[in-house]
Amino acid sequence: MSFIIRAATRDDLQHLYEMAKLTGGGFTNLPPDRPSLTAKLDLSTKAFERTDDTLEDETFVLILENTETGEVRGTSQLFTQVGQKWPFYSYRITSLTQHSKELNRTMRADMLSLVNDLEGSSEVGGLFLHPSERAGGLGLLLARSRYLFIAAHRPRFGDQILAELRGIIDEKGGSPFWDAIGGRFFGMSFQEADEFNAIHGNQFIADLMPKHPVYISMLEDGARKVIGLPHPNGRAAMRMLENEGFAYHQYVDIFDGGPSMTARTDQVRSIRDAVEMSLDGLLDEGTGEKALIATGHLASFRCCYGNRMLEDDSIRVDPMTAKALNITDGDMVWSIAR
């Protein structure tokens, strides 16, 4: 089978909707709501059509397509500058140390403080791979293709990049973290709040969430234990982010307590090590090194796995990759070792 990453179009609405119904909740960037998905595709289309190389608040949606069947089997998203339309909230784990001379005792308390520290960052998110395709490195292709897109369009992205990982959700679709904090102030279940956020944004958090720090020791055990932990299905994603140079700096999601990972954009491995060269010939079958290979600008962006050989200021790729990406000698190609 042959898979490519390409720009999403409005014609992908049904595909995205079918995948959204498989997420199991807690997936804000891919809600099973047609109007929301339509609006997201409209924003993405406008972003792909804008040609100015300047940083603005934009959303890009990418699609994983099986080129043999035409089936859409995955998706991922890029947000160029979060917190512009409405505030971008996180909890940051902070500490307060106090000392009593009379008791000769020092107490250290960890707290959750509501912050906008990550506002203005770019974000990679919305990655979902169809359950039947979770083999063969397609999740890695979806994830790392985003970094090649950023490298190819660097002026459109900020100097810091973040990734939010879904937190722990129980078998009923609830969140122990939300139940312990947000649920007490909003009178909404986690699923209701998550769906409302996906469709309407999180301004309601600004309106009603208490601004004072929350002492972690006062939370129930079930909530304390999940703070900063990724959903079991997200552990592999967390390892991939760490391999790219992302780190956890005590920021957690305000809904489910999942970890937010951050990195300097130019230090993300797949951005830092990506190279752009012109195509100069094809490889013999079975030669070259395995790589992610991409070409095209904005809406014509395409990316796939293939083989490459770097030669001074040019690159050669295998014939199957050249066909999948529709490239010929002289075309500019971005690549990164697999």
Rank of each mutant, 00 (worst) to 15 (best):
Tyr17Gln: 07
Tyr17Asp: 02
Tyr17Lys: 11
Tyr17Ser: 09
Met19Ala: 05
Lys21Ala: 12
Lys21Pro: 01
Gly24Val: 12
Gly25Ser: 09
Gly26Ile: 07
Phe27Val: 12
Thr28Lys: 02
Thr28Phe: 02
Asn29Leu: 11
Leu30Trp: 02
Leu30Gln: 01
Leu30Ala: 06
Pro31Glu: 12
Arg34Pro: 06
Arg34Phe: 12
Ser36Asp: 07
Leu37Cys: 04
Leu41Tyr: 08
Asp42Trp: 05
Thr45Asp: 12
Thr45Cys: 10
Ala47Gly: 11
Ala47Asp: 04
Phe48Gly: 04
Phe48Ser: 04
Glu49Arg: 15
Thr51Tyr: 07
Thr51Asn: 07
Thr51Ser: 09
Thr51Lys: 14
Thr54Ser: 08
Thr54Phe: 04
Leu55Tyr: 00
Leu55Ala: 02
Glu56Trp: 06
Glu56Met: 08
Asp57Asn: 15
Thr59Ser: 10
Phe60Met: 07
Val61Gly: 01
Val61Arg: 02
Leu62Pro: 04
Leu62Thr: 11
Leu62Ser: 10
Ile63Met: 15
Leu64Val: 05
Leu64Pro: 04
Leu64Glu: 01
Leu64Tyr: 03
Glu65Trp: 01
Asn66Pro: 00
Thr67Val: 15
Glu68Ala: 15
Thr69Arg: 10
Thr69Trp: 03
Arg73Cys: 10
Arg73Phe: 00
Arg73Asp: 00
Thr75Lys: 08
Thr75Tyr: 06
Ser76Leu: 00
Gln77Arg: 15
Leu78Lys: 05
Phe79Pro: 01
Phe79Asn: 03
Thr80Arg: 04
Thr80Gln: 06
Gln81Lys: 10
Gln81Leu: 03
Val82Ser: 03
Val82Cys: 01
Gly83Thr: 10
Gln84Leu: 11
Gln84Tyr: 08
Gln84Ile: 13
Gln84Asp: 03
Lys85Glu: 13
Trp86Lys: 09
Trp86Gly: 01
Trp86Thr: 12
Ser90Gly: 00
Ser90Ile: 01
Tyr91Thr: 03
Arg92Trp: 05
Arg92Cys: 06
Ile93Gly: 01
Leu96Gly: 08
Gln98Phe: 02
Gln98Gly: 03
Gln98Tyr: 07
His99Ser: 05
His99Thr: 06
His99Gln: 05
Ser100Tyr: 14
Ser100Ile: 11
Ser100Lys: 13
Lys101Phe: 05
Lys101Val: 05
Glu102Met: 09
Glu102Leu: 12
Thr106Gly: 12
Thr106Tyr: 14
Met107Gly: 00
Ala109Cys: 12
Asp110Thr: 07
Ser113Glu: 14
Ser113Tyr: 07
Ser113Ala: 14
Val115Gln: 09
Val115Tyr: 03
Val115Pro: 01
Asn116Ser: 11
Asp117Phe: 09
Leu118Asp: 03
Gly120Val: 12
Val124Pro: 00
Gly125Tyr: 04
Gly126Trp: 01
Leu127Ile: 15
Leu127Trp: 11
Phe128Thr: 08
Phe128Gln: 02
Phe128Cys: 13
His130Arg: 14
His130Phe: 10
His130Gly: 05
Pro131His: 13
Pro131Thr: 09
Ser132Gln: 13
Glu133Tyr: 14
Glu133Ala: 15
Arg134Asn: 07
Ala135Asn: 14
